[in-house]
Design a binder for these strands. Structure first.
Lengths: 125, 125
DNA sequence: CGGCATCCCGAGGGATACTG
DNA sequence: CAGTATCCCTCGGGATGCCG
């Protein structure tokens, strides 16, 4: 059984699946999804937790995820206004994978650094 | 138990884990890893299978993955030269996750498109 | 608080030509 | 076959200022 025969093969750039993959294969999108795993969060809370993300990029990322149906946006008419982001049921089907990926990086950081050192040593004058 | 307390938290941009995540959170890197799951492949074979990738980007992607210790590069002194790329044992610990992600996109494409249509309809004049 | 609008720069990546 | 080397241009994303 080969993926090449599936209806919307991500290896074929003529299908929209490629675009969806591209939007998910983005560090900011993955970080946002992972951060929402434990429940809804407000905009500035996300902004603080995901260190290094700018306001503009966080907004863009949230809009994309919302458009793809992975997260929902709920506005509370408080003063000042409060906005909560939450995973949709569709988004929730993805977070396990995202979490695995995140943990993989943290758990294998040593091995990656060792590989980098070896590679750099071998490819240096 | 919160990820924030792990040694190399990906949510903290002061750790190198953020960079590793960024390199993995790349559509080309994920497609290459997924494609190598079934065994070693040659350069031009990858190039053909991963539609839309340019020669330059494929080379860059392969180099990064090799440097991070996820794939290996083996040269055969044939004429013309043959080069095979293969997953390392470290890389193999990632492919399951990558495959899950790829299949998620293919399986949930309908839901994503429906969400997009609904979003666009709601946010149109 | 949770954005939107602009300006602007540097990196990512396409196209093309050449090589061991 | 499997690259390297340039040129070039788009656009992701940072910085800043303003608003409901």
């Amino acid at each position: 059984m080969n993926e090449k025969q599936l209806p919307w093969n991500i290896y074929d750039d003529r299908y929209p699946t490629r675009d969806v993959l591209a939007r998910l294969a983005d560090k900011w999108a993955l970080l946002v999804l992972g951060r929402l795993e434990n429940g809804p969060m407000r905009f500035n809370h996300l902004r603080r937790d995901i260190r290094g993300i700018s306001q503009k990029v966080l907004t863009q990322t949230l809009r994309k995820l919302e458009r793809d149906g992975l997260i929902s946006r709920q506005i509370f008419a408080t003063v000042p206004v409060t906005v909560e982001y939450n995973l949709t049921s569709l988004g929730r089907t993805l977070t396990d994978t995202v979490t695995v990926l995140a943990h993989w990086v943290e758990r294998n950081m040593d091995a990656v650094q060792a590989a980098q050192a070896a590679y750099d040593a071998a490819n240096t004058a």
